[in-house]
Amino acid sequence: MKKEELPQDESALASMTKELMYVKDKDGKYTTDLSTGWDVKKQALDNAWDDIKERTEEARIAVKNGEKSPIYYFMELRLMDFPVLSGYTGFWAFTIKRHMKPNVFKSLSEKKLAIYAKAFEISVEDLKNFKGSLEVDSRQQ
């Protein structure tokens, strides 16, 4: 890539830094230059976030309909997957999957709930009482 071809598009990264890229100068030698971003990348990241939001919304509805426990919703909300949540809680993936069943969730001990609450950085009350409503939105109105 030539120095003059380095994209300088808008990106979320701009609030933190410009990123260093390796480009060729006019003599054909490698040098570095700073870039504010690249539209192609930004679009990929934006799409990934749209997907995350969609997954979180689906999870919220699943909790609301009584199909899943709040653990499922907060896992999605915190961008976690099973290996990550497993790391934070110490529970195996299949145990977590069980805890995502509303009936099993109801019978979880306070101790286990506290472990999940800590992993999601919320209170045990917020975890227990999450019914899949758009509480955050209604509070903002």
Binding site: M1, L13, E19, L20, M21, Y22, V23, Y30, T32, W38, V40, K41, Q43, A44, L45, N47, A48, D51
Partner: peptide
């Protein structure tokens, strides 16, 4: 979305562009 993930791995902050190939050059 899968293609988007490839592009992010390849170009996101940290590679110097072109999936580290410019850095290797």
């Amino acid at each position: 979305l899968y293609l988007g993930q490839i592009v992010r791995m390849q170009e996101e902050i940290g590679t110097g562009g072109g999936g580290f190939r410019f850095l290797f050059a």
